[in-house]
Amino acid sequence: MTQAFAQSRTGWRRKLGVLFVVHYAEMLQYRVEIALWAVATMLPLIMMGVWAQAGESGLFPFSQVLMLRYFIAVYLVWQVTIVWTIHHFEFLVVTGRLSPMLLHPVDPCVRFILMHLAEQGTRLPFALGIVGLFLFLYPDTLTGGEGGDIWWPGWWNITLALAACYFAFILRFFMQYALCMVAFWHERVTALDAIQYLPHLFLSGMVFPFEVLPEPIREVLLWTPFPYTVWFPASLLVHGEAPVLRGFLTMAGWTVAFFILYRVLWHKGLKHYSAMGA
């Protein structure tokens, strides 16, 4: 019994290992495109310009250095939490390539997650290069400028931030994957993706620091999943001032909710997909 369990566990480890390595090799073939993705996701760094400039005015409750750090952190967090599975999924459904995957004894979603991890691994060096460029242009980010502190949130916060990043990735993945299921009924789901991207863009802290929001709005948003996918991990990285317990619990709740939604839609969707000719 225990032996069988151990065996099935090593079986899974090998399965995941092989899948990851092969998909990593696949992603390396697309390294030029993926490097361009590191540029295409530079929006936080553009917003950094506006907010850093605003921070200098002294009219806001934060300094220029804090804004530099915050948006660099947001860019880094985003590199881990980008989910593109909807584009891939739509392609698979429209071209009928999902069908052979359904005949595999491993759920396709396992492969999709591993593909994201492999893609992240390919993109990260380029993203770090871009961060390096900005740190070079604005060295105050690290040193804190005249009379400022060095940017060091501490090991504990870094660990928490990392955990929050990957937790956020899983949350974002299932949020989008649940939406992917619509592809079974309506072929062009990428238009839907543009809509789910909007709250992510404007309510997650990607284009403005959460601190500038009026208190009641902030309180409402803290019940939604959005701030936890960007603002929460980024804040942990910047100074560690974030509601840790609440953050992880809220993320867990939403993840479970979207996971259940995906499972329900998946079963319904497969029936419909099959009705349309698979």
């Binding site: 079986g11 090998r14 399965k15 290992g17 092989v18 899948l19 092969v22 090799a25 696949e26 073939q29 697309y30 009928g96 390539r97 069908s99 052979p100 005949l103 595999h104 004894p105 491993v106």
Partner: peptide, 28 residues
């Protein structure tokens, strides 16, 4: 197993060996 058409299972930009390894892993 089901075979339908030409480019259903293979990973387009990698040698076939890699796709075969994936399937071997998937089928344990």
């Amino acid at each position: 197993t089901l075979v339908m058409g030409q480019k259903q299972q293979m990973i387009w930009d990698l040698p076939p060996m890699e796709s075969l390894r994936v399937n071997a892993a998937v089928y344990g």
